[in-house]
Design a protein around this nucleic acid. Structure first.
Lengths: 128, 128
DNA sequence: GGGGAAAATGAAAATGATTGTCAAAATCCC
DNA sequence: GGGATTTTGACAATCATTTTCATTTTCCCC
C-alpha cells in the first residue's frame, strides 16, 4: 500500500518551499486526510531514501523536506523569510569540493551546500 | 565570571575534531571539573555567538562545536570516520554563493558549506 | 570590608521533534 | 475465503536542548 506515501508526496509537491514533517502532517489533516504522524515520518524517510525528495536541516535542527523538480544532484537557494526555494546546479562547487578534498588526501567526498538569503519579494516588505 | 566559559573553550581546544555539548560535558566531568550541563550549553552558545567556535549539525541533528584556528570565515573538511577536521578557505565558493543569490534577486546571502570525506589514515584502515 | 543589585550557575523539569512498540487493519498470494 | 505479510497509527519512549528558579558569585559603590 503506497497510497499514503503518495499522498505525502503530493502534499509536498503542492508546497512551494521546504516543509517539516509536522507541517505536512498538519496540512494533510486540514485537508481531511486520515493519516498518522508516524506514517508521515515514515513516508518522508522512504521518499528521501529513494531520492524522491530532498532533506535539509533548519538551524534549529528540524528536518525539512521538499519534492524536487529534478532527481539529479543540486543545491538550494532558500529565502529565510518566506521559505521560497530555487534549485541551483553548481558545477563549480562540486569541483571545488572534490579538489579541496583530494588536496588533503580525503576520498569519497560528499558535501552539503545550502545558500540562504532574502528573496526580492521579501526584501520589498518591511522586516518583521 | 567567565571561568567556566574559558574552561569549556579550553576543553574544545584540546580536541581534534568536532565535539557535541554532551561530549564536552562528559569530558570535563571526567577531568574533575565541577560544571553543569546547562552551563556547558550556555558557554558553547556564547562562544559560537562570539565567533570563537564553529558549530555545525551532524546528520542526526546534534550540534557539534569546534574551537577554530582562525576567526575569519571558513569551511570544514571533516573525516566521516575519525572526525579529523581541516579548515579550508574557499573564496571560490563565497563568490559562487553571492552570484547564485543575486542572479535570483536574493539579498543578504549567507551559506553553509561542509565537505565530508574519508581521510588518508582512515581509508588505509579496513571499513568498520 | 560591607551591602545589595545583577549576572552566572546548575539541578531538575519541560519541551519538542523523532523513533520505537505493538495491536488492529489493509493487502496480497494462493 | 484464509492465512501470511505489510502498513498503519495511537501512544509511549528517547534524547538533545531549553526553561525555570532558587542559590551562589561577582561587581560596583560606599
Amino acid at each position: 500500500m503506497t497510497t499514503r506515501r503518495d499522498a505525502v508526496h503530493d502534499t509536498l509537491r503542492q508546497s512551494e518551499g521546504f516543509r517539516s514533517a509536522q507541517d505536512v502532517y498538519a496540512e494533510m489533516r486540514n485537508h481531511g486526510a486520515k493519516i498518522g504522524l508516524t506514517t508521515v515520518y515514515r513516508a518522508l524517510q522512504a521518499l528521501a531514501d529513494g531520492g524522491k525528495v530532498d532533506v535539509l536541516r533548519t538551524d534549529d535542527g528540524e528536518s525539512v523536506y521538499r519534492a524536487c523538480a529534478t532527481e539529479s544532484h543540486h543545491h538550494h537557494l532558500v529565502c529565510r523569510r518566506c521559505g521560497h526555494t530555487v534549485e541551483v546546479a553548481g558545477p563549480a562547487v562540486e569541483r571545488w569540493a572534490e579538489m579541496v578534498g583530494s588536496e588533503h588526501g580525503f576520498t569519497e567526498i560528499t558535501h552539503t551546500v545550502e545558500v540562504f538569503g532574502t528573496c526580492s519579494s521579501c526584501s520589498a516588505t518591511p522586516a518583521g
